[in-house]
Write a protein that binds this DNA or RNA. Structure first.
Lengths: 196, 196
DNA sequence: CCTGGATCCTAGCACCGCTAGACAACCGAG
DNA sequence: CTCGGTTGTCTAGCGGTGCTAGGATCCAGG
C-alpha cells in the first residue's frame, strides 16, 4: 500500500500548491486575474487537474478563505496575548486586537476578499460553518467579552464590533475612506465601543 | 432645431431605460446575471447600443450606484427629519438614521452592491467624487454631528459610524451574521457610539 | 511481459465584454 | 420631390472565461 500512500501524499501536496498559487496570483494581480487557465499554467498542469481537486473556482476561493481564517485567528490571539503582558489592561488588548484585524486585511487584501467579499461557497453562522471560521469569531470573542459591558451578550457585542472592523477594513481599502487617518478611527471606535 | 432636441430627448430617455433595466435585472437575479447581451435584449436593442451610452459595463454599474446614492441620501434625510418631530431627541434621530441606512441596504441589495462592493469606476473621498456620493455622506453628517461628542471631529465620527453601518449591512446580508437580531445590533451600536 | 485502471491532456462547449464594418433610415439642400 | 451624406443601428466576430467529454498515456499488479 506504500505506493498508494505516496500518491495520496503527492495529491495532497498538489492541492496545497493549487491553493498557495491561487493566493499568490490573487495578491499579485487581484482575483480577476486568477483564471483557471493561468492558475493551471502556473502549477504546470492542465486545467482539468484543478477540477479533480475542487468542484470549481468557487471552491478554490473557499480554500484560500479557510487558510486565511486560520491565520487571522492566530494573529488575533497573538496580538491580544502580546498586549496582555504589557502595562495596559483590557482596553489595550482590545486596541491591539483591532489593529491586528485591520493589519491583516491591509496586508492580505486578496485573502480578505476571499473570506468576506467573494463567494467562496462557505456557510457562516450556521451548523456547517467550517471550524476555521468559527475559530476566528471565537478569537475575537475571547478578548471582547471582557469589554462588552453589563447586561450585554458577549456574542452580540462581538458581532457589532466585528462588523465595525469589517466596515473600516473594506471602506478604507476601497478608497472610500481617507487612508491616512486609519489609526484615529481605530482609537475612536475602541474608546466608544469598549466598556472598560 | 426641434428635431435634434427630440432626438436628444429620446436618447436621454433610452439611457434612463438602460440604467433602470440594469437595476431591475440586478435586483431580480443578481449582478452576475446582468450581461450586456441580456441587458440589450431587455431594452430591445442590440449590444453596441449600450456602448454608445456607456464606456462599458463598469459605467453602467456606476450609473446605478449614483442613482442609488441619491435615493439613499434622500431616505436618510427623511428618516432623520421624521424622528425629529417625534418625542425623542438626538438619540432618536440617530437610531432612525441607522435603521434607514440598513433598510436601504436590505431592500436594494443590488444597488447597495453597485455603490460599495462592485467596481463602478467611481471616485470616493477625492476631488472628483460625484455630488451624489458627497451628498450621501453629508446626509449622515448632518445628523451625526450632534452626537460626535466633545473634541471629536464630526467628519471622523461620521466615517466611523458609517463604516460600522456598512459592516453590519454587508455581513448581515451575506449571511455572516444571524439575520434575526439585526435590531438589537443597531440598538447596541447607537447606544455606544452616539454621545447624547 | 501483459493488461486494466488510474491519471492527465487536448479539444471543445456556451458564454462573457467589447468592437469593426456593413447596412438602413432619415434630414437638409437643391 | 429627389438625392447625397450623415447618423444610427445591427450582424458578425475577436479573444477571453469557467467547465467538461473523450481519448491518450502511464504504471502497478498479476
Amino acid at each position: 500500500m506504500s505506493v498508494q500512500e505516496r500518491k495520496q501524499r503527492e495529491r495532497a501536496e498538489r492541492e496545497r500548491l493549487i491553493v498557495a498559487t491561487a493566493r499568490e496570483l490573487a495578491e499579485e494581480q487581484g482575483w480577476d486575474a486568477v483564471t483557471t487557465r493561468r492558475l493551471a499554467e502556473r502549477i504546470e498542469y492542465s486545467q482539468p487537474v484543478l477540477y479533480s481537486h475542487f468542484r470549481g473556482k468557487r471552491e478554490i476561493i473557499g480554500a484560500v478563505a479557510l487558510e486565511g481564517a486560520a491565520e487571522l485567528a492566530a494573529q488575533l490571539r497573538a496580538a491580544s496575548a502580546g498586549a496582555a503582558v504589557s502595562t495596559e489592561g483590557a482596553r489595550g488588548r482590545v486596541t491591539a486586537l483591532a489593529r491586528a484585524y485591520l493589519d491583516f486585511a491591509e496586508r492580505n487584501p486578496a485573502v480578505y476578499d476571499a473570506m468576506f467579499q467573494l463567494d467562496g461557497g462557505l456557510a457562516f453562522a450556521a451548523e456547517d460553518t467550517p471550524q476555521a471560521l468559527k475559530d476566528g469569531f471565537a478569537a475575537l470573542l475571547e478578548t471582547l467579552r471582557d469589554v462588552a459591558g453589563e447586561g450585554v451578550e458577549p456574542g452580540l457585542f462581538t458581532e457589532v464590533f466585528w462588523a465595525s472592523l469589517h466596515g473600516l477594513a473594506t471602506l478604507t481599502r476601497a478608497g472610500r475612506l481617507p487612508a491616512g487617518e486609519a489609526e484615529r478611527r481605530v482609537g475612536l471606535l475602541v474608546s466608544r465601543l469598549a466598556v472598560v
